[in-house]
């Protein structure tokens, strides 16, 4: 479904990604794990078109994404939940969700998708007229995910959804992610919370200093000596 091959990417002169190759198949829940600054977010930015790679190719369902603009990529069916959610704090919860269905493809089914999102996150319906800035951390993350779902993505990119949340909330959010995946949305999850992510994912990649250094099923990676030592303590 999604395939990155030999991606090199840089911010100005600083190269961040080195020959990164990743593949995500339809229906999978794949995790990309690694420590802070390893290049996880950059990988997502390259996929969603917010950063253009210096070389390498990205394809999504037979479309080449290398030159597509960010909003065109959303139109194709890839939606990103940015790190920290980046919700529109000055607008209402409902307006945030409506913005999720901004592209033409999602717009016509907006009401139906909204119902589906409210089923997954009932809390959002309770708070729909509230200003998003007044939500708690967990609710913000739900809103960010809900907003991304409003675009009816085929592939959902999640950047550090556990960021800044209490362990109990992390567990809840991860359960919801599993549920979303079970309902047919392919998920690429980026996480620093390595253990939780590996327990959740079908497959995972480990990224270090901008290079992919390991891959396998979640269980495999959990038992790898190097992974255990580096991330699980």
């Amino acid at each position: 479904m999604l395939k990155l091959s030999g991606i090199n990417a840089a911010y100005k002169d600083l190269q961040v990604l080195w020959d990164v190759s990743i593949q995500v198949d339809e229906g999978e829940l794949v995790a990309l794990v690694g420590s802070n600054g390893a290049g996880k977010t950059t990988t997502l930015r390259v996929i969603s078109g917010l950063l253009k790679p210096a070389s390498g190719s990205i394809s999504f369902q037979d479309h080449s994404l290398g030159k597509e603009s960010a909003h065109r990529i959303v139109e194709l069916g890839i939606s990103q939940v940015p790190e920290g959610g980046k919700i529109f704090t000055g607008m209402s919860v409902l307006e945030n969700l409506e913005l999720g269905a901004f592209v033409a493809r999602a717009r016509k089914d907006k009401d139906q998708t909204l119902k589906w999102v409210y089923e997954i996150f009932p809390r959002l319906e309770e708070r729909k007229n509230q200003r998003a800035g007044t939500l708690s951390g967990g609710e913000r993350q739900m809103l960010a995910i809900g907003r991304a779902l409003m675009s009816k993505p085929k592939l959902l990119l999640l950047d550090e959804p556990s960021f800044g949340l209490a362990p109990i909330l992390v567990e809840q959010i991860f359960e919801m992610i599993t549920e979303i995946n079970r309902q047919g949305v392919t998920v690429l999850l980026v996480e620093q919370n390595v253990r939780a992510a590996l327990e959740l994912a079908h497959r995972a990649y480990v990224i270090e200093n901008g290079r992919i250094v390991g891959q396998g099923t979640g269980e495999d990676l959990l038992s790898f000596e190097s992974v255990r030592r580096a991330y699980l303590g």
């Binding site: 969603s48 917010l50 603009s69 960010a70 909003h71 959303v74 139109e75 939606s79 990103q80 940015p82 980046k86 919700i87 529109f88 704090t89 000055g90 607008m91 307006e95 409506e98 913005l99 999720g100 901004f102 592209v103 717009r107 907003r147 991304a148 675009s151």
Partner: peptide, 23 residues
């Protein structure tokens, strides 16, 4: 309108707006 919603999204978080398909 939809246009106004997009404008406000650009004001609030430009990158998040882009990632939702708002040019």
């Amino acid at each position: 309108s939809k246009l106004g919603l997009g404008m406000m999204a650009v004001r609030e978080e430009e990158e998040a707006a882009e990632s939702l398909g708002v040019s």
